[in-house]
Simulated scan of single mutants.
Amino acid sequence: MNGLRVAALMLATMTTGLVAGVYAIYANAFMPGLATTDDRTFVGAFQAVDRAILNPLFLGLGFLGALVFTLLAGVLSVGEKALPWIAVAFVLYLVTMILTIRVNVPLNDALKAAGDPGSIDVAAARAAFDEAKWRTYNLVRTLLTLVSFGLLGWALYLTGRSAVQP
């Protein structure tokens, strides 16, 4: 059971870190870079990246996997010193999922539904997208996921420490 608990906690930590990294890349490179482009480039590039990220590796292993592995790690850590840290990490990550589904995904979907950048009013599509709102909520997702990652790292440390103490 201890090996499964540690494995689940390691997977929770790694997948949460992966998602935090993806959100951070959007916050620190992708969106600031796109902000400097013309409307047609912005709409086309964002649509292409949003389509590409909807893949089993990111959605299944990363985005959903982080939640599932954290939940599993918590269930397997009942009665352990690491449980409160895992529980808070789970709640914070769950909040990021809710924000993603309620804010970022609808904005992404609306931009994709606007149509081909070669045949639409790209300035209107970009304005309707509301970059400031998307970036603000992405920054919140980034920070919460990063804190969740840190809490899971601490839980992993506590788990390892308790394994070597009598």
Score class of each variant (00 low, 15 high):
93 Y>N: 06
163 A>W: 06
124 A>F: 00
114 A>T: 03
40 R>H: 12
166 P>Y: 03
95 V>S: 12
80 E>V: 10
101 I>L: 13
49 V>F: 04
35 A>K: 10
77 S>T: 05
22 V>F: 15
85 W>S: 08
31 M>C: 13
136 T>M: 12
13 T>I: 14
67 L>R: 07
17 G>M: 14
165 Q>M: 08
9 L>N: 07
1 M>C: 13
49 V>L: 14
111 L>K: 02
88 V>K: 09
63 F>N: 00
144 L>N: 02
73 A>Q: 05
146 L>A: 15
96 T>I: 14
163 A>H: 03
165 Q>N: 14
106 P>A: 07
88 V>H: 10
118 G>S: 09
14 M>I: 14
112 K>W: 04
56 P>C: 07
109 D>Q: 14
44 G>F: 01
64 L>R: 05
49 V>Q: 06
57 L>D: 03
19 V>G: 05
9 L>H: 07
164 V>L: 15
143 L>F: 13
80 E>T: 15
153 G>I: 06
136 T>I: 11
130 D>G: 12
155 A>P: 01
29 A>V: 14
52 A>F: 08
46 F>N: 00
90 F>V: 03
69 F>P: 02
29 A>G: 12
70 T>R: 00
90 F>N: 03
148 S>P: 05
44 G>T: 12
151 L>S: 09
2 N>G: 13
64 L>G: 04
28 N>E: 11
73 A>G: 11
57 L>M: 09
140 V>D: 04
63 F>E: 00
50 D>M: 13
17 G>S: 09
78 V>H: 04
5 R>P: 01
41 T>M: 11
149 F>D: 00
48 A>F: 10
127 A>S: 13
65 G>M: 01
11 L>G: 07
40 R>V: 02
39 D>S: 03
104 N>W: 03
12 A>Y: 01
82 A>F: 10
85 W>M: 12
153 G>L: 01
97 M>N: 15
28 N>R: 15
98 I>A: 12
160 G>V: 15
19 V>I: 13
135 R>W: 04
80 E>A: 15
87 A>L: 11
55 N>M: 10
140 V>W: 05
43 V>I: 02
143 L>V: 15
34 L>W: 02
103 V>D: 04
78 V>E: 04
47 Q>R: 05
140 V>E: 01
4 L>T: 06
9 L>S: 09
40 R>D: 03
7 A>N: 08
122 V>C: 06
125 A>M: 09
37 T>K: 06
73 A>I: 07
75 V>S: 07
107 L>A: 08
85 W>Q: 09
32 P>V: 08
139 L>K: 05
160 G>I: 09
48 A>N: 11
65 G>L: 01
30 F>A: 08
159 T>M: 03
72 L>Y: 03
141 R>E: 02
127 A>V: 12
105 V>H: 03
144 L>Q: 02
68 V>D: 04
142 T>M: 07
124 A>C: 05
16 T>C: 13
135 R>G: 13
60 G>V: 06
141 R>Q: 04
4 L>Q: 12
80 E>L: 14
31 M>Q: 10
28 N>H: 08
30 F>G: 00
124 A>D: 01
84 P>S: 14
103 V>L: 10
3 G>L: 09
133 K>M: 14
149 F>A: 09
43 V>C: 01
153 G>K: 02
17 G>T: 11
58 F>L: 09
63 F>K: 01
120 I>N: 04
39 D>H: 00
99 L>S: 07
129 F>L: 10
22 V>E: 04
60 G>C: 05
19 V>A: 03
120 I>H: 04
